[in-house]
C-alpha cells in the first residue's frame, strides 16, 4: 500500500513537470493582457478573445487546411510507395533484391538536412516554390517506411503466398487482398507517424514557401511570433493550442499502434 502511494506521488509529480508547459500555454491563451502583465496565471474568466484574434491576425484557417492537405498527401503516398517497394523485396524472387534492399536502407544514414541545398535548387529551377508539390513530393518515399513494412511482410507465412499463387492469384492481387490487410497495424503506425512528422515539419516549408497560399501552420506560428510576440502573448498561445489539438488527438488515438509498430520494427532486426 505504502509503495502504491509513493508511486502515485511520483507519477503525478513527473506528469506535472513534463506537461506544465502545455498547461501554461492553455491557461495563457485565456488570459487578457492586463492579467498577463500582472503575472496572473489562472484566468479570472475564460474568454475566447485571443482565439478570435488569432484567426483574424494571420490566415490561420488557410494554414491549417494547407497543413492538412500536405500531411494527408504525404501519408497516403508513403503508405502506397513504401508498401509496394517492400512487397517487391519480400515476395518477388529477383536478382539484386539484396542490393536494392541495402540501397534503400543506406538512405537511413543520410541526414536529410545535408541534402537540403540541392533539393532547394531543384524546386527553384522547376519553378515550384510556393506549390503543394514542393511540400509533398520529396517525402513520398522513406527508407524507414520500406524497412518497417519489409520487417512485417517477412512475418507473413511463405506457404500462404505459395498456395495463393497455385490458386492463380496474381501478385498484385496478393498484395492488395492479403499483404496489405494483414499488415493493418503496421500501416496504421506508419501512417500516424508519417502524418505527425509531416505536420510538424519546419525547415523545408520555411524554405519553399514565401507567401501565404500554401504555407503550413508551423511556419504560420513563426510568422505570428515575429509579428505579435512582443505585444500579445495570449494570442500566440491561442494559436499554439489550436495547432496542438489535431496532433495531440491523433497521438492519443494512435499511441498503441505507434508503440507496437515502432518497437516491433526496431527490435526484430
Amino acid at each position: 500500500m505504502k509503495r502504491k502511494i509513493f508511486l502515485y506521488v511520483l507519477l503525478v509529480i513527473s506528469a506535472f513537470l513534463l506537461t506544465f508547459p502545455l498547461l501554461f500555454a492553455l491557461l495563457a491563451s485565456f488570459l487578457n493582457s492586463g492579467e498577463l502583465h500582472r503575472g496572473v496565471y489562472i484566468p479570472e474568466s475564460f474568454n475566447f478573445n485571443s482565439y478570435v484574434q488569432a484567426f483574424a491576425s494571420i490566415p490561420l484557417f488557410r494554414f491549417l487546411i494547407n497543413s492538412l492537405i500536405v500531411s494527408v498527401s504525404v501519408t497516403i503516398g508513403q503508405l502506397v510507395l513504401c508498401s509496394l517497394a517492400a512487397f517487391a523485396i519480400v515476395f518477388i524472387p529477383f536478382k539484386g533484391r539484396n542490393f536494392f534492399f541495402f540501397l534503400f536502407i543506406s538512405t537511413l544514414l543520410v541526414p536529410w538536412e545535408s541534402t537540403v541545398v540541392p533539393n532547394y535548387v531543384t524546386i527553384l529551377n522547376a519553378g515550384w516554390l510556393n506549390t503543394y508539390q514542393a511540400l509533398t513530393l520529396p517525402f513520398l518515399a522513406t527508407a524507414f517506411g520500406i524497412f518497417l513494412l519489409r520487417q512485417h511482410f517477412m512475418t507473413i507465412p511463405k506457404e500462404l503466398y505459395e498456395s495463393a499463387e497455385i490458386d492463380g492469384c496474381s501478385r498484385f492481387r496478393f498484395y492488395r487482398s492479403f499483404a496489405l490487410p494483414l499488415s493493418k497495424p503496421v500501416l496504421v503506425a506508419l501512417g500516424v507517424y508519417g502524418f505527425l512528422t509531416t505536420w510538424n515539419m519546419y525547415l523545408w516549408p520555411l524554405l519553399v514557401t514565401s507567401d501565404t497560399t500554401v504555407r503550413t501552420i508551423q511556419i504560420g506560428i513563426n510568422m505570428m511570433i515575429s509579428q505579435e510576440a512582443s505585444t500579445n502573448w495570449s494570442m500566440v498561445m491561442a494559436a499554439v493550442v489550436i495547432i496542438l489539438i489535431p496532433t495531440l488527438l491523433l497521438l492519443f488515438i494512435g499511441i498503441k499502434h505507434i508503440q507496437r509498430g515502432l518497437t516491433s520494427g526496431a527490435l526484430k532486426g
Binding site: 513527473s14 506528469a15 513534463l18 506537461t19 508547459p21 502545455l22 501554461f24 500555454a25 505527425l196 505536420w199 510538424n200 519546419y202 501552420i217 508551423q218 511556419i219 506560428i221 513563426n222 511570433i225 500566440v236 498561445m237 494559436a239 499554439v240 495547432i243 496542438l244 496532433t247 495531440l248 491523433l250 497521438l251 492519443f252 499511441i255
Partner: peptide, 15 residues
C-alpha cells in the same frame, strides 16, 4: 508522458 511527441517543433518552441 508521451504527449510531447504530438507537439511540433514550432509550437513547442513558441511555448
Amino acid at each position: 508522458f508521451s504527449s510531447t511527441m504530438g507537439v511540433s517543433v514550432a509550437a513547442g518552441a513558441a511555448i
